[in-house]
């Protein structure tokens, strides 16, 4: 009897909270369909670059589905490799093929090697056996998957925790009435937002230091770039997470509803962050990645940690993150108008 009453009450609570209900039913579907798209992605066909003319090896590769691009000079080709227009560059030194792999993504490295093996088999039936020499522009053959995932996951974790904690603490300001009290003082709306950014910024700095240091020094994740840039990227990423969390907390009426943003805001970003090769995804899904802050954070992190790049390569990503933070901050200031117009 009492259990029946309990069950009824819980069902009624769900019916009243349509959002939670929708989340329980619909969010898993969204996440699962995303996963199916990502994991059952088509086979990746690498882009291969050759200088001046195609070789028998590159022709064999083309037959196997690879896209072969011909460059006039070697510096041009190397530049294309560095820009990731091509995944590997094949040059001939005497008759021995030299394969230079870009190397920052282990899964692409593997598909290049597989392609090389297959095409070698085809070529060697007609010609004498020769062994290509493989080298890497970035990374190496023994680069582990974690070396690739590490930089992305650092960004993901920082974004995730800052988003949630900032969102919940701002939500609590609203629900406990302290926001109202704040707004009954002569504080300006932008001062509240900047105050939050400042306060959390200090904590974020410590968090970024700790996570980055732990990943690099303790977990031994590959790191060839400048640690200062890693900190800069993580701080900008967390500023974005903070301002977005604050903004979305306005659309949640309790902590539970704040948690419901995780599958909607965080999980899709993880999938589209570059953790898995994006080139095999449908184009519309790749485009969605362009509006996701973690995508830019992850891109910059990989540039610094695996490719050892400097400011000129990551500046665009950082400006975009900064732009995200500025837009979200402005929206926050505007959203506070709901509580006080001045």
């Amino acid at each position: 009897m009492r259990i029946g009453a309990m069950i009824l009450r819980i069902l009624r609570q769900f019916i009243h909270d349509k959002r939670t209900m929708a989340l329980m039913f619909i969010a898993p579907l969204i996440v699962l369909s995303l996963m199916s798209l990502v994991f059952s992605g088509k086979e990746y066909h690498p882009n291969i670059g050759v200088v001046s003319q195609a070789s028998s090896l590159s022709t064999a590769m083309e037959k196997l589905g690879a896209k072969v691009l011909i460059y006039n000079t070697e510096p041009l080709a190397t530049q294309a490799l560095d820009n990731r227009d091509i995944d590997a560059l094949i040059t001939l030194k005497e008759t021995i093929p030299q394969v230079l792999i870009e190397g920052s993504d282990p899964s692409i490295n593997k598909s290049v090697q597989l392609l090389l093996e297959k095409s070698m088999n085809q070529v060697s039936t007609t010609q004498v056996q020769f062994k290509p020499e493989i080298s890497f522009l970035h990374g190496s053959l023994d680069m582990a998957v974690i070396d690739r995932f590490g930089p992305i996951m650092i960004g993901v974790f920082i974004f995730f925790f800052v988003f949630l904690i900032a969102g919940i603490s701002f939500l609590r300001e609203r629900t406990t009435g302290t926001l109202e009290r704040l707004l009954s003082t002569p504080i300006k709306r932008w001062e509240i937002v900047i105050g939050y950014v400042g306060g959390f910024g200090i904590f974020t700095l410590i968090q970024a230091l700790l996570i980055s240091f732990f990943s690099i020094k303790v977990l031994g994740i590959m790191m060839v770039g400048n640690f200062g840039y890693v900190l800069l990227i993580t701080i900008l990423l967390s500023m974005t997470a903070l301002t977005l969390g604050m903004l979305l907390s306005a659309f949640a009426s309790n902590e539970l509803q704040m948690m419901q943003f995780i599958p909607l805001i965080i999980v899709p970003q993880i999938f589209l962050s570059g953790l898995l090769p994006l080139n095999t995804l449908p184009l519309w899904l790749q485009k969605i990645g362009y509006v996701m802050p973690i995508y830019y954070g992850a891109d910059a992190m990989i540039d610094v940690m695996i490719r050892g790049k400097g400011w000129s390569h990551i500046s665009t990503d950082l400006y975009i993150l900064l732009l995200f933070s500025l837009i979200f901050s402005t929206l926050n200031i505007l959203a506070l108008r709901k509580h006080r117009t001045m």
Partner: peptide
């Protein structure tokens, strides 16, 4: 409403609005 007038007003809401 005028922001700097809030300096001259003390307001206590129905909820205690404290950082517990």
């Amino acid at each position: 409403p005028k922001l700097n007038m809030l300096q001259q007003i003390g307001y206590m809401a129905q909820s205690d609005a404290l950082y517990t």
